[in-house]
Design a protein around this nucleic acid. Structure first.
Lengths: 165, 165
DNA sequence: TAGGTATTGACTTTTTCTGACTAATGATTA
DNA sequence: TAATCATTAGTCAGAAAAAGTCAATACCTA
């Protein structure tokens, strides 16, 4: 295993994992952006840090999750990039609480209730609620295999709630 | 006719690729036209931007598709041209029109553009657009098997648009 | 030592870009 | 007028440039 010493300015003497370095790098980029966005190129960052490119994906999927308030988008092909966007939440956002309270899976009924509650508490608009219901409707969900349906529903719900902060 | 001026614009730190330059140029030409039409000469635009002429075709077929609300016509031979026309929605339930124009499957990019167009035409709110993007994001779609991804995306998009009528 | 976390690399998929070749159309000439 | 030439645009396959996936290990901590 490759272990890298932390820069002196950081916790001295403590070894830092590659994942931590990557995380640090991304967080720094975000903090330097007015829009709380880090645009990176996977191979570039990987070679800068000195790790396998796929390690970047690991870090993104384990640390920069919706639960933690991050939205990821990316483009493949020439000139491709990965964009990590931090959702800034004013106060301790109730929606963030809700997102965090959700598990990896959720059934139809529960999802409906979550949305209803958000609507009633005025956290989301009538219209947003309608769009969310639509996205999670049977018409749509019927098409995804039963065994992953609740998982897809949970992911969809979280992503949609996240942009309502 | 023609009149193309390349700007050194950037997309937030990410290097602008040729396709983006071409797209920008065409969009600018369209926006400058009352008729929402851009007339270009392929070789001229290509040499101005500095790329292979066929690159223009690539951009046209990947970005300015009918599905995205554009109509292309062209003429070969001396004085030939390519005309890119942005279709303006007629008022009678434009969303229904859009929904009907969508097939059973749709890829990520096209879905984005459909939403973008709806937003631009004032058919949906900024907030609805955000929720839709979220529901169709890679983070979500990654979880559904590749072979049915475009199908699920199309179904989701249609359902969401449907409640916006 | 078991179970979670980290790391890698082989392989896949998507997107961009080019160049060689084809097709159409207007202009010129026999 | 018919044939030929010049001037466009269209197509397509392949190379290159990214990012994504996943299974196999390696490491660490309770």
């Amino acid at each position: 295993m490759i272990i890298i010493k932390v820069r002196e300015s950081q916790k001295r003497g403590i070894v830092m994992k590659i994942s931590d370095l990557i995380t640090e790098e991304i967080l720094r980029a975000i903090s330097e952006s007015d829009e709380h966005i880090a645009d990176i190129q996977r191979n570039m960052l990987a070679s800068h840090i000195g790790c396998a490119p796929s390690q970047i994906n690991y870090v993104l999927s384990s640390r920069f999750t919706p639960e933690n308030g991050y939205i990821i988008e990316s483009q493949r092909g020439g000139g491709g990039y990965i964009r990590i966007k931090k959702v800034i939440m004013n106060k301790t956002s109730p929606i963030m609480h809700i997102i965090n309270s959700l598990g990896d899976t959720i059934d139809q009924i529960s999802a409906r209730i979550v949305i209803e509650n958000c609507l009633e508490s005025g956290l989301i608009s009538q219209n947003s609620a309608r769009v969310m219901y639509a996205a999670l409707s049977n018409n749509v969900m019927r098409q995804v295999p039963v065994e992953i349906r609740d998982k897809v529903r949970a992911a969809t719900l979280k992503e949609m709630l996240l942009v309502q902060i």
